[in-house]
Design a protein around this nucleic acid. Sequence first.
DNA 1: GAAATATAATTAGAGGTCTAATGATATTTG
DNA 2: CAAATATCATTAGACCTCTAATTATATTTC
Lengths: 157, 157
Amino acid sequence: MKDYEELFVALRRITRAIDLHSKKLQRETGLTTSQLLVLEAAVKLSVASPSNIAKEVQLSQATVTNLVDRMERNELILRKKSNEDKRVVEVHLTEKGKKMIDLAPEPLQAGFLREYRKLERWEQHQLIGSMQRIAVLMDAEDIDASPILTTGELLTP
Amino acid sequence: MKDYEELFVALRRITRAIDLHSKKLQRETGLTTSQLLVLEAAVKLSVASPSNIAKEVQLSQATVTNLVDRMERNELILRKKSNEDKRVVEVHLTEKGKKMIDLAPEPLQAGFLREYRKLERWEQHQLIGSMQRIAVLMDAEDIDASPILTTGELLTP
DNA sequence: GAAATATAATTAGAGGTCTAATGATATTTG
DNA sequence: CAAATATCATTAGACCTCTAATTATATTTC
């Protein structure tokens, strides 16, 4: 039993729960969690370009392009080239997109939120603090990350 | 600003950090985190069938089949039909697979583990406790999850 | 023992996510 | 101004993940 195993298992359970919720959201509303976040970011940002959205929601630019593609196909947003800078694409919500954002449920499980809101303020803060602490530790660069495998023969080309 | 937003952001950062680490692992060793977990489960379980592995690592059976496919292609494992029950497939490690499991790094960032191990025992337990609490809340059924959208017109067919 | 039901695994299809390569514009510099 | 360099977006190619449908084999039941 590795020393971090409990933590790892809990992390995986959470990750999976979030993913499953996203899929459920999609079945019920047609929008996944990521799409909803991008939609919200597009409203919030004064210049809703893919790169700005990517920064806002913490995804790569390529992933945002992918999500925007799908939402454009579903007529939730429109792409428009910027006049100032022709490299830049502006993402605009359609009427349908605006309706969607009003109607869409929260990106976290209703059951979870209900329970979370029952907690004392200090308990909520403790949870947030713990998660942020882990997030910071994980974001940190893997400074001493020298490749462990150097045999070559085991690597997939 | 929604009341749970900080928590949500931290969760997303963690999820992403884990994913990025998995991709880095793959570049360096050819194995993703999920593949490594499946490999370890196959060693650990007395009957290493896809369904048992799925239970062990908390993934769907279909996902495990997918991972096993890839690892079979990379000659890390072999499939063998069970003699007792012809529906059952047994996953066996090849020599290459065994070597791999010995050499593979931990499924969490080295930097994270180093910092984590520096924490006092009670701090580690607090982190684990918080994570488990969140995991439990999220796993719980969405009991009152009535579809919020019922207009139909907004649904993707 | 044959029909109905159940279980194991796989396949099909849809998303999500990333990096690396490419294409289109802008900006900088000799 | 023209060439070199930057930046923004998209495309290509991998992999992960899921649910629903399908296939093969077991088990149950009449």
